[in-house]
């Protein structure tokens, strides 16, 4: 599937977020406005503590803003209950974290199946899709291995497979290459880029890795909680 007409997947309006760290108030986000369109392969870049992870968390409904709103495909996240946010995370967003993404007691294929299971997809369809996804990320042979039996790069590939298998509107990846060596990181980025091209999956990264920034089609720079395009 290629990229067709671009629609707004995420609209961010005047986002503010403050939290306490070691007894001090940290202004992580200071009035962010941002739109992400379908099919984008974008990166939010900035130094440590700039607010990029906080922004990603708020966009993904994992964290709540103090002010402002996040709208996912027309659905506002403002005022939603925990359970409603959980359903949005389950059905509309895919997540990839820095490390330890996977459930250790599940095999690779079971980890990929997990989200579909929560969505109520039938067993047969679930297994078929999960195996196909693992094939796409080059891990068909490792499908029955548990995370501890996989390398860091393989684990991240499984996380990518899990994030996109149920066709979310956007995949949010928080520094996905941070714990990988350059070669493995590059290979992971290639994989995500291919998926972006072939499936039209929207990817948004947070990163301070120049390699990710180079590959991103759009770079959103953030400093001290503000976008500094």
């Amino acid at each position: 599937m290629g990229k067709g007409v671009r629609m707004k997947v995420i609209e961010i309006k005047n986002l503010h977020k403050t939290y306490q760290s070691n007894g001090q108030e940290v202004h992580a986000l200071r009035g962010i406005d941002l739109d992400i369109e379908s099919g984008e392969f974008s990166a939010i870049a900035g130094p440590s503590g700039s607010g990029k992870t906080t922004l990603l968390n708020v966009m993904g409904g994992i964290d709540r803003p103090d002010e402002g709103d996040v709208i996912i495909s027309g659905q506002t996240m403002k005022g939603l209950s925990e359970s409603e946010l959980s359903k949005i995370r389950l059905n509309r967003i895919g997540f990839i974290f820095q490390a330890y993404n996977l459930i250790p007691v599940l095999s690779a294929v079971e980890n990929v199946e997990y989200v579909m299971l929560l969505q109520g997809v039938e067993k047969h369809e679930r297994r078929e899709k999960a195996l196909a996804m693992l094939r796409d990320v080059g891990l068909e042979k490792e499908s029955h291995r548990r995370p501890a039996q996989l390398s860091g790069g393989q684990q991240q590939r499984v996380a990518v497979a899990r994030a996109i298998v149920s066709g979310p509107e956007i995949v949010l990846a928080d520094e996905p290459t941070a714990n990988l060596d350059q070669k493995t990181g590059s290979s992971l980025l290639d994989l995500m880029k291919n998926l972006n091209h072939e499936r039209g999956t929207t990817f948004l990264f947070s990163t301070h890795d120049p390699m990710v920034m180079d590959r991103a089609e759009r770079l959103i720079r953030i400093t001290d909680g503000r976008i500094t395009l």
Partner: peptide
């Protein structure tokens, strides 16, 4: 704790 954080993030309900 971290594992539960991940599970919650990807849409696992607290009741589960």
């Amino acid at each position: 704790t971290r594992e539960f954080g991940i599970m919650l993030s990807i849409g696992t309900g607290p009741e589960r």
